[in-house]
Nucleic acid binder design. Structure first.
Lengths: 160, 160
DNA sequence: GTCCGAGTTTTGACAGCGTCAAAAGAGCGG
DNA sequence: CCGCTCTTTTGACGCTGTCAAAACTCGGAC
């Protein structure tokens, strides 16, 4: 889509104490342009700029920047892991049960009152994760019966 | 400890329109005695009674009874799928980030007010899934975790 | 009680996603 | 400019789950 006000990849990496490499910058740029991307999509996007980049390198980068707090990893049930750069703000996700599309959902309650159960079974609560499931607008209007099991084809996103 | 006040597996299967087989009853009994079990644990439990049972058969049974509404499938990020018999009541789960133990968490708010976001991006909302993450009582007191088979969580922390 | 067809289970292979490990290459402080 | 350390490449491996065909049961019919 349109080029947005992306954060400086190099600056982000330096602040996080990570070395600035082409691969890492390319991954961050790809994530900035296409949030909620899977490893496959990111590999494709990076390969468009750095054709020699290996899949493993992308995995490494994603793990590194996720650990460093620059990115966030999302793992919806039944889908491969996705990544996004939005960290720090507490938001959740809504996943399309047909095509796997993901959208951000800001926590409407601000402080998440219901996300502090009193029956924690002795657990030391760290985080509350909310995932909404539904059908996206495209799949609603598109009445074509796409079986929820094998629609990996649909997930292929056409790049601009 | 063997025969509890568990629902009759045979009756459950018949009501769901599924054939009553040894394998299916064994799986249901195993789930009744050990909720939040993974396929591996269920296979082991079933094998104790029916040694010739194949892993694939367990997979089939779990898929069948899940589809029939007798069981529920849980897929915490980074863990293999788990199953439980409690269906119908809307409850969530809290997962130990160290050992993977899972406990039930009843929806304390009853009606889940914050689980109806107003910004659905055009999605037709179907379900809201909540997963709590934390550290279980055992892992809190016991600094040395080694329950089942996963120490993958250890690498969550790394300092350059 | 016996038979038969549809539904189950077994067996073996396979696919997706991610990780491990060692050698080669690149960043960056001195 | 040097060299140490971190990154990347390459290839193999592991885990979880699925696909497919043949052998076997369940359960209603006769």
């Amino acid at each position: 889509m349109t080029t947005e006000v992306l954060p400086e990849p190099a600056a982000m990496l330096r602040e996080a104490g990570l070395r600035v490499t082409d691969t890492r910058q390319a991954v961050i740029i790809a994530l900035g342009e296409h949030p909620h991307s899977g490893v496959d999509s990111i590999v494709a996007a990076v390969a468009a700029v750095l054709p020699s980049t290996s899949r493993q390198a992308v995995h490494n980068v994603l793990t590194d920047i996720t650990t460093a707090g620059l990115a966030r990893r999302i793992e919806p049930a039944g889908h491969p892991a996705l990544y996004e750069l939005r960290v720090g703000d507490n938001h959740h996700h809504i996943v399309c049960q047909r095509c796997g599309t993901i959208a951000d959902v800001d926590c409407v309650t601000g402080h998440a009152p219901c996300l502090t159960p009193n029956t924690t079974h002795g657990f030391d609560l760290t985080e509350a994760e909310v995932t909404f499931w539904g059908v996206c607008a495209d799949c609603q209007s598109d009445a074509s019966p796409a079986p929820a099991s094998s629609l990996l084809e649909e997930m292929k996103e056409s790049s601009p």
